[in-house]
Design a protein around this nucleic acid. Structure first.
Lengths: 221, 221
DNA sequence: TAGGATCCAGCTTTGGATCCTT
DNA sequence: AAGGATCCAAAGCTGGATCCTA
């Protein structure tokens, strides 16, 4: 029996906090999603498990996890020392209109405007448990940096083409390949003036950013 | 013929700037200090060469390189990308009175109060040349951080003993082993209440600090 | 393809070890 | 021992590659 969507932020946060301390194994049993098998084969499963446990409805559509609240859910795995060590996927990039994208009105901004961070703590015995969830909105200073990264990245895509853009660009946001097999079309002309295809990309938050804001929500790392 | 000590800071800085662009090989020929042989066997030679070229007098005594000016000389080797990649030795630590040392009046503070940084640039062909020298005094903000590091490090030495102190402590300053063979006595009681000896230690500036202040003398990395 | 992410080889960083001269 | 520092193996970081489901 899966929960209905939360009616407001308070209910969402209450639910998330009620999960604190519970093991992934017990959540997995309650919500019917197996985490057995090699780690490499369960990528993304923990995120889906939390979606079910909290009543998220976004599914695979390009929307928020809680559309009525405009809140995005992000599960953040913590290492044995209690801090994030991996980057966090935000959303795919639309290459077709990179040259006219702006921060205001962007999908990145919309998703990061209100985030429920749910840490997943690694225990010494190898098990994992839900940590303390928190709702976050970027401070003005934080949003300025994110906006700067966004526009620098898409500016380079528009100017020099995506193939020359490295994941090194961007202080907190970066653009990286997304998915192993997919190919998407772009409008960038190839050598013969034709369209070329490229591997899909996504925006990611660097680990040093999530590390900092979990420690201090207003941090400017 | 070695130069006399400079009479003031202006003369010192003029001399250092006059060396800009000169190769270590030509300086070595002029001042009679060979840099031939394995790199491992010439540690410290470049520093001594610059001391001679600029008229430093400190020698092996525990004083400034230019005692009359109270200026410390530090040669900073730059990698092929033009930035420092190694830490910089400041001075040895006196273990006998670690528990009553304070930043004001400390030897670390005295040495870092006025520093002539002389970069040594690595060229693509393997040769090295003198870069742009600069005189530096820490800003108030920078000195606050250095003082904090200093007191945290010596506080731990006084509290827990030096053997448990890691080089990880300190944002810009760190304490590390100094010299391969030496042993010094400390006042810290051993397991049997007796005195113990330990490997000598020194204060070092982390590479990220020298990297930052060479790019911007007022930086707070 | 969108969403949910983690894996891991290779590069970078660095803490501890070491070298020379006076 | 003080001064002058650099070496280098191992840990840390991260950019690019990859995995699963609807």
């Amino acid at each position: 029996m899966l929960p209905a969507p939360p009616k407001d932020e308070a209910e969402l946060l209450d639910r998330a906090r009620a999960l604190r301390g519970q093991s992934l194994e017990s959540l997995s049993a309650r919500f019917g999603l197996s985490l057995r098998g090699a780690a490499v084969a369960t990528k993304g499963k923990v995120g889906e498990l939390l979606e079910r446990a909290l009543g998220a409805t976004g599914g695979s559509a390009a929307t928020w996890d809680f559309p009525a609240l405009r809140v995005e859910l992000k599960t953040i795995p913590l290492g044995t020392r209690g801090v994030p060590s991996e980057s966090t996927f935000v959303c795919s990039v639309s290459l077709l209109d990179a040259d006219r994208a702006e921060w205001d009105g962007s999908w990145v901004r919309a998703k990061l405007a209100r985030v429920l961070w749910v840490p997943v703590e690694a225990r010494a015995d190898g098990s994992r448990a839900i940590g303390e969830a928190r709702l976050w909105t970027p401070t003005t200073e934080q949003e300025d940096v994110l906006a700067g990264d966004f526009e620098e990245i898409l500016g380079r895509v528009g100017a020099g083409g995506i193939e020359g853009l490295s994941a090194r660009v961007g202080r907190w946001l970066q653009l990286r390949p997304k998915a192993a097999h997919g190919r998407v079309r772009t409008d960038a002309p190839g050598q013969d003036g034709d369209r070329v295809s490229t591997v899909p990309r996504g925006f990611y938050l660097r680990a040093r950013f999530t590390r900092a804001i979990l420690a201090d929500p207003g941090a400017v790392p």
